[in-house]
């Protein structure tokens, strides 16, 4: 797997001796958008947390740029930006202040102009930039978090249920933005249970069921992955 930016090699994770991920294997190349699909309790979040370095594998490894995350946490984290499911940035700060705060934590210096450019890129209206985040909708908060991810200039993005709770227009905007980032060379890993959304944006989909990766789908010739095929596999997996 020479070009793989993200890979799982026989990845197994257990909570209190109970196996929640069982020998999962996949790889994601640079510029790919990989969506990990699965129902509740399938092991999506566990996979994500293992790549973020907040969980350790029982066996196997979760790798970023070929290095096991649990052995190279600091170098791995420098390569990634993370967008949590419920993006609750700090309500008492404005969008710009939130971004400045998080960038400062990461020891990254960006000018206000660069921050404003990123907010423009994620289509957050300028009149909202100086409002406190407690006044933002979920979509606006998510745009702010995406702008933060962009400004971190990390080549890899991990997204947790990124379209959950967004209206259709916001989902469309989000998908477009993800495609643009992938085209620009970013590698994107998302976990979701939204089959339709995943097929819209991802060019590689993994189907996780009860801790095991039961199917992998690849988009071919710049075509979207067929929603119906994935949906059938998803339902079949759940009923199996």
């Amino acid at each position: 797997m020479k070009d793989s930016v993200i890979s799982a090699n026989n990845l197994s994770v257990a909570y209190a001796n109970q196996l929640v991920l069982n020998k999962v294997n996949f790889s994601v190349a640079q510029g790919q958008i990989f969506a990990l699909l699965g129902g509740n309790g399938a092991g999506k979040s566990t996979t994500l947390k293992t790549f973020l370095g907040t969980l350790k594998p029982q066996s196997g490894s979760a790798n970023i740029l070929g290095k096991p995350v649990h052995q190279h946490i600091n170098t791995s984290r420098k390569q990634i930006a993370y967008l949590p499911e419920s993006v609750m940035l700090y309500g008492h700060l404005t969008a710009i202040e939130n971004i400045q705060y998080f960038l400062s934590l990461a020891d990254i210096k960006q000018s206000v102009q660069q921050i404003e450019d990123a907010l423009t890129q994620v289509s957050l209206q300028p009149q909202a930039w100086h409002n406190k985040l407690s006044q933002y909708s979920k979509g606006m908060r998510q745009k702010t978090a995406i702008a933060l991810a962009l400004l971190r200039q990390a080549p890899i993005l991990f997204l947790d249920e990124p379209t959950s709770g967004l209206d259709p227009a916001a989902i469309d905007e989000f998908n477009q933005l993800m495609s643009q980032l992938a085209q620009a060379g970013s590698t994107i890993f998302m976990v979701t249970h939204d089959v339709y959304g995943a097929c819209q944006v991802a060019n590689k989909i993994g189907l996780l069921h009860q801790g095991e990766l039961i199917s992998l789908f690849n988009a071919e010739h710049n075509q979207s992955i067929d929603t119906e095929t994935v949906h059938k596999a998803f339902v079949r997996g759940i009923r199996a």
């Binding site: 973020l52 907040t54 984290r77 930006a81 993370y82 967008l83 949590p84 499911e85 700090y90 978090a145």
Partner: peptide, 18 residues
């Protein structure tokens, strides 16, 4: 509870320092 813990951990250069 606010879902920021992992974001802070992943973003900060030294999570313990925060």
């Amino acid at each position: 509870a606010a879902g920021r813990y992992d974001l802070l951990t992943v973003t900060a250069s030294s999570p313990l320092k925060i």
